[in-house]
Design a protein around this nucleic acid. Structure first.
Lengths: 166, 166
DNA sequence: CCTAAATGCGAAATAATATTGCGCGATCGT
DNA sequence: ACGATCGCGCAATATTATTTCGCATTTAGG
């Protein structure tokens, strides 16, 4: 069931909603070239099947007073599965940690964090992160400026790829 | 003008739309405790003022065939402003690069990349990224698994913060 | 090759939602 | 205290979402 293949229209829908998640269904239908009812059915199906996992407004963190963004590379003492997931759970409970990814290589995790200012972050860093159980090392890097931030799927690449197969 | 302060209702709106960007305006109005028309006006204002920068569907990259996610740390030869922005522009043109942040410290940039498979990524890495002008070093780390991915603002932290001031 | 089930579309009707146009009370500055 | 300003909510209208249903196309047998 959760492996049903998508057709061109489905991919167009995903691309459009990734670009503008609040587009009305009639506008969406117009763009992908079908009428509103089947378009809405497709969207619902894509949601149910997990191709669409949710919709979010992009809120400007800086405007809201979160001036600081930091990447933290974390090394653990033990990489036993129980210890890995223990650390992941701790990350889930830290609101300043927005992303947590397990990596291969020297570093075990990379975290993307936000904070109102450097002081707040330093306090989080020393009182929470570095002093957390099983944490061996933490290296942090301040984000000086963001040049690109487009989470999601590069649909143009996907299309090229499918064109190849045909 | 773009510094107008937000009140509690505005922040609630932002929090709700960050959590569910497709919520209807009437539902939103109900949740924040005002009627629909003023609620819609507030949303529009928040959009115009840039507090809301857009809306996006969360599309599952894996389901669409992008199995690989990689962080790349890039060091440049020259950090002159012209060279920095030249590199940023190149990142903008690479669809596999979804995020590009300039950092302090030893590394100049961190990139978040996606690719259909390792082979595709290796090719991008060798043919594009490492061979790009002014690039001195690239270290990559494969994402083994994701533990947390909640882009946006931690509104719970923001509330605590505002409660302090009062 | 033909038929029956299944699939997906679109027109039309109905239910919700978005959006506009006011009038009203609260707040603010003088 | 008073006029101006601001933001709310009611009511009316315009759009959109959602359901229902019949039709065409495809699919799997026979």
């Amino acid at each position: 069931m959760p492996g049903t293949k998508l057709d061109d229209i489905d991919r167009m829908i995903l691309a459009e909603l990734q670009a503008d998640g609040r587009m009305t269904n009639v506008e969406l239908a117009k763009r992908v070239g079908i009428s509103a009812p089947p378009c809405l059915r497709r969207v619902r199906t894509l949601e149910e099947q997990g191709f669409i996992q949710g919709y979010h407004a992009d809120v400007d963190a800086r405007e809201l007073g979160f001036e600081v963004q930091v990447f933290a590379m974390v090394g653990l003492v033990s990489q036993a599965e129980a210890d890995l997931s223990a650390f992941e759970n701790r990350c889930l409970s830290w609101p300043l940690v927005r992303e947590c990814h397990m990596l291969n290589g020297e570093v075990d995790f990379i975290l993307k964090c936000v904070a109102p200012d450097l002081r707040s972050f330093q306090r989080f860093l020393t009182e929470q992160l570095t002093s957390a159980e099983n944490v061996a090392s933490v290296k942090t890097s301040l984000v000086i400026r963001g040049a690109k931030d487009e989470p999601g799927v590069p649909f143009d690449v996907l299309e090229e790829r499918l064109a190849m197969e045909a």
